[in-house]
Design a protein around this nucleic acid. Structure first.
Lengths: 223, 223
DNA sequence: ACCTGAACACCGTTCAAGT
DNA sequence: ACCTGAACACCGTTCAAGT
């Protein structure tokens, strides 16, 4: 026959878990966490909201799946470098950048327990740490510490992104916090008032990496 | 007059921001984040849901206020010890324990940007770090790293608590994750499968402190 | 100034009914 | 087996009306 339509090739608009998760990610990226509703998702997929429940148990599972997807993509094909410490650094930056591009992943990571996405990160970090020559117990603690740090920053970044969608207002916000800190009573808040000028011109990515380096230095330290 | 009722002393059931926040904390502690609704809050305060809006702008502000309260209490009157490093440790543990007692604070901290509660923590940590002799710039980075780490752990703990309300099921959950890790393909997940046995008997609080010590060691390291 | 509570515009989720 | 879409049981928030 001339027009062969293979059975395995369904219509493009056929519903599937993968297509649902993909659409969810698009909505989350475009309009943020609050925009992801089953109604919006159903509309985008040109179906009824109930249809989604055939492929996905509920919203929390959908969010977890979307997060797993993004994290897997960020971690995928992580090129191995000569220096294992450098590997941890680039790995951490990959996750940072992924969360920067998809802020909702940050909130999700911060509120999910030992779910797939967290496991992926922990495994990736742990693998790179193996060659440090740390004893097993300390190694688990070290990998956990790094993962928790990364997830913590992720949550804060997501919160920032939620506050001023799409960068404009970000510097305005930082300046506002900076003046708030400057105006604080130096007696009661010596640290914040001293550090206020640094806030305006600091780079989130650099500060994130500085924290990673701090923890790495700690891991290197004997005992 | 015999029965003097001072004007400033209102009826016990008079609404006020403080009383609203207090009631909110009680609900959050007793039944978790999902139980805090304006209707439930209004019922507990024996008033209409709209009345709450006279004292509080919206739910997010209410959650922030509740979080600030708990954090302030946890940080309040932090006794100063001889060793500044030990001070950081006990400070971190205070926050950890507060979040353990009020898991919802963990989720809240992880999703709020540079709000009051985060500022309080950053200030408290930063103050203790001052005496380490770190240069200003590195000091800001160090305090941020510690705060982000603490907040990251907080979020994870809150997630765990949400999963198995009130401890029962916690060990069951850990064991379940442990077997999941054990069953993983050791080729693809060498770290998790190696570390699985440690999961069941590890202590969250100890591991948290190990992470704090790791960062402290990193801060002590020159350059 | 402060409180009441019905009403509005949403949610996630379910489910009988369809194909 | 999979989809439809109305219906249910909720939400946060607003607001006219009261005191």
């Amino acid at each position: 026959m001339a027009t062969t339509t293979r059975r395995t090739e369904r219509r493009t608009d056929a519903l599937s878990r993968a297509r649902i998760v993909e659409a969810a990610i698009e909505i989350l990226d475009a309009d943020g966490e609050s925009a992801l509703t089953f109604r919006a998702l159903a509309a985008r997929l040109a179906t009824g909201s109930g249809a989604i429940y055939w492929h996905v148990a509920n919203k929390s599972e959908l969010l977890a799946a979307a997060t797993d997807d993004v994290v897997a993509r960020a971690l995928g094909g992580a090129a191995s470098e000569a220096d294992p410490e450098q590997e941890v650094r680039t790995l951490a930056l990959r996750i940072f950048d992924a969360i920067d591009a998809h802020p909702w992943v940050g909130s999700q990571l911060a509120r999910e327990p030992l779910q797939l996405a967290m496991q992926q990160i922990l495994e990736a970090i742990g693998q790179r740490l193996e060659s440090f020559g740390t004893p097993d117990r300390a190694l688990f603690d070290a990998a956990s510490a790094l993962t928790n740090y990364i997830v913590g920053v992720a949550g804060q970044n997501a919160a920032n992104a939620r506050l001023h969608v799409h960068d404009e207002g970000r510097t305005a916000f930082l300046e506002q916090v900076a003046t708030r800190w400057t105006d604080l009573d130096a007696e009661q808040h010596p640290f914040l008032s001293k550090v206020a000028p640094q806030l305006a011109d600091h780079d989130d990515r650099e500060q994130f990496l500085a924290g990673v380096d701090l923890i790495l230095a700690g891991i290197r330290t004997p005992h």
